[in-house]
């Protein structure tokens, strides 16, 4: 099965399609992370909790990862 996948990966057209798929997925992930970060910012004003900073930090890390994946998807 894997050799079939590897064979397809060598076909230029499929390779380009796969790359486009990964880039668009990473773009979606970046937008999703920004949206989540914004949502948490507004939710933190409604529900004031000790863990608010931690949650915002994790969501910021998620955004950083999303941006890193986007950059890697463009160059790798």
């Amino acid at each position: 099965m894997i050799s079939v996948i590897e064979f397809f990966l060598t076909v230029p057209f499929i390779n380009i399609l796969l790359k486009l798929f990964i880039v668009s997925l990473s773009v979606f992930y970046v937008f999703y992370s920004i949206l989540m970060l914004g949502q948490i910012g507004s939710l933190r004003k409604i529900i004031i909790t000790d863990q608010g900073d931690l949650i915002q930090f994790v969501s910021t890390v998620q955004l950083v990862v999303a941006l890193a994946v986007f950059v890697i998807s463009l160059i790798y």
Partner: peptide, 28 residues
């Protein structure tokens, strides 16, 4: 082992990111 390094990287990276985003979303 039968995958190229590039394919191996993307399979794992996308899976871990998808699971992480899914779990974090549900936690929130």
């Amino acid at each position: 082992q039968s995958l190229s390094i590039r394919a191996y990287f993307w399979v794992n990276a996308l899976a871990v990111i998808a699971v992480g985003a899914y779990a974090w979303y549900n936690f929130l």
